[in-house]
Computed example of a mutant assay.
Amino acid sequence: MALPPLSPEQRRAALDKAAAARKQRAEVKEALKHGKLSLREVLASDSEAIRKMTVHALLASLPDIGKVRAQKIITELGISDSRRIQGLGFRQRERLLARFSSQG
């Protein structure tokens, strides 16, 4: 399915919106890494940009958790590799919070 053609103004607005979302996600990951935000706070966020972050990226940004450990944890908890925060079910959220109880 082809995307409709965008005017230069629409294209610029879309690029600006995407850049702002990337910046916000980067700030959240940095805050998680340094303990300024908890996992519980991120999971409870109503920000569209944060809700569209993958669970793998979220876990990989936690202190002492890298990409490999994040993948292992996702597999252990039965969460899809491509799952985004907004797509987590209640039980999946609870399992994540229980796994990282010191985080939230």
Rank of each mutant, 00 (worst) to 15 (best):
M1D: 08
M1Y: 11
M1A: 13
A2G: 08
L3A: 12
P4N: 14
P4L: 15
P5N: 13
L6Y: 12
S7Y: 06
S7D: 06
P8S: 13
R11C: 00
R11S: 04
R11W: 09
R12A: 14
R12I: 04
R12N: 02
A13F: 10
A14H: 06
A14W: 05
A14L: 15
D16I: 03
D16E: 14
D16W: 05
K17R: 15
A21Y: 11
A21E: 12
R25C: 04
E27Y: 11
E27S: 13
V28D: 04
V28Q: 08
K29G: 00
K33S: 14
K33Y: 09
K33F: 11
H34C: 02
K36G: 02
K36H: 06
L37V: 04
S38A: 08
S38R: 15
E41P: 01
E41K: 15
E41N: 07
A44G: 01
D46V: 02
E48L: 07
I50N: 03
R51N: 02
K52G: 02
T54Y: 07
T54L: 08
T54G: 03
V55K: 15
L58Y: 13
D64F: 13
I65N: 06
K67E: 10
R69Y: 04
A70L: 09
K72T: 10
I74P: 01
T75S: 12
T75L: 09
L77T: 02
I79L: 05
S80Q: 12
S80M: 09
S80D: 13
S82E: 15
I85W: 08
Q86T: 05
Q86A: 08
Q86G: 00
G87S: 09
L88M: 08
G89C: 07
G89K: 15
R91Q: 12
Q92V: 02
Q92R: 12
E94L: 12
L96T: 03
L96R: 11
R99V: 00
R99C: 02
F100V: 03
S101V: 05
Q103E: 09
Q103K: 10
